[in-house]
Amino acid sequence: MKNGFFTFLLLSFSIFSQEPIEATFIDKTNLNIDTLVGVDNFNTLYYIKNNVLSKKDDSKTITYNNFQLGQISSFSAFNPLKINLFYKNFNIAIILDNRLAEIFKIDFNTLQPYRNVSHISTGNDNTLWLFNQDTQQLEVFDFKNKISLAKTLPIQNVVLDIKSNYNYCWLLTTQYLFTYNYFGTLISKIKNDGFTSIAESDENIILKKQNALFYLKKNTTQFIPIITPNLLINQFLLANETLYIYNNETLQKFQLKTN
């Protein structure tokens, strides 16, 4: 197929804006957990403590555990009806419904071709984005029919983090931040200047560099510094224009003024 049929933006440099974004404090909650998984628009909190996934709202807390599979290595609550957990040591993914009941189990060890998976994230319908370490490819994987719907070209970088929505996947590596669409087509490639983790909401990205956060608005190339209080940024999430920062003791909520 001719290259002219595809249109994508290939960027090999990063541009830093000189005007930072102010993060306005809203409130904070005392929290003693191991890992913050997600916060939805209804203030439902997803977290992991002692290798148990919990979903907590104003009325109750429900939990899920699968200790025989070892430590939970990655997770996504982007789609609350199909939450995914990945157990890297066993190369197995678990899909949960909104009650944290198991609805699918994907054992990549038993599939042909074999996939040595390092990262997964939520895709559209019955799909996952997964990174195959052996082929160095990102795949759109249909976990119901156990087939790949799309694959990227090999990526010769170490993967640090992965985030996705129904249409796009952001792959942060040691050298670049890649953006791919649902068909496995490269949309953008921006040089990574020390970022180690990312969060996504509405195709806007937050990136962490040391103990500082930067904002990348969709369809732009400017990494904009975010002004935050002097606190440890252990984990962070973005929901609409609300930034959540967990510092091992409290979950703090901030409004971002991005306009």
Rank of each mutant, 00 (worst) to 15 (best):
L100M: 03
T7Y: 11
W129N: 06
N247C: 07
E19Y: 08
V158I: 14
E19F: 04
I233S: 02
A239C: 14
D107H: 02
D34W: 08
F195M: 01
F75D: 03
S164L: 02
F143M: 04
D97P: 00
F42R: 12
Q133V: 09
N65V: 05
K88D: 11
L81K: 13
L171C: 10
V52M: 14
N50A: 13
K144R: 15
R99I: 01
Y180Q: 01
L213N: 04
A23I: 00
L10H: 08
Q112F: 11
N43G: 12
N66S: 11
N240V: 15
D107Y: 02
S54P: 03
W170I: 08
F90G: 02
N240P: 00
I155K: 12
T61K: 06
E22R: 15
Q252F: 07
A199S: 12
N248D: 15
L207Q: 06
F78I: 12
T24R: 15
A23S: 14
I83W: 00
D34N: 14
K144I: 05
N66G: 00
S59H: 12
K144W: 10
Q137V: 06
I198S: 10
N230Y: 08
N30E: 12
E249S: 13
K146R: 15
L96I: 12
P20C: 08
K56P: 01
W129G: 02
P229F: 08
F183D: 08
Y166G: 13
D57G: 09
R99A: 07
I224D: 01
Q156G: 07
M1A: 15
K146N: 13
L251E: 11
T185M: 08
F104C: 01
N230Q: 12
N157M: 12
L36Y: 06
T221R: 02
T173W: 05
T152S: 13
V39L: 09
I147N: 14
I233M: 02
Q255H: 14
G194Q: 05
P80Y: 04
T29R: 08
N89G: 14
G123F: 02
Q222T: 09
L11A: 10
F141E: 04
D58F: 07
T179H: 00
L138K: 02
D34K: 08
Q235V: 12
I227A: 04
T7S: 12
L207H: 03
S17P: 05
Y168P: 04
G38L: 04
F195T: 01
D107L: 03
T44S: 13
L232F: 13
D34V: 00
I226H: 06
I206V: 09
L69K: 11
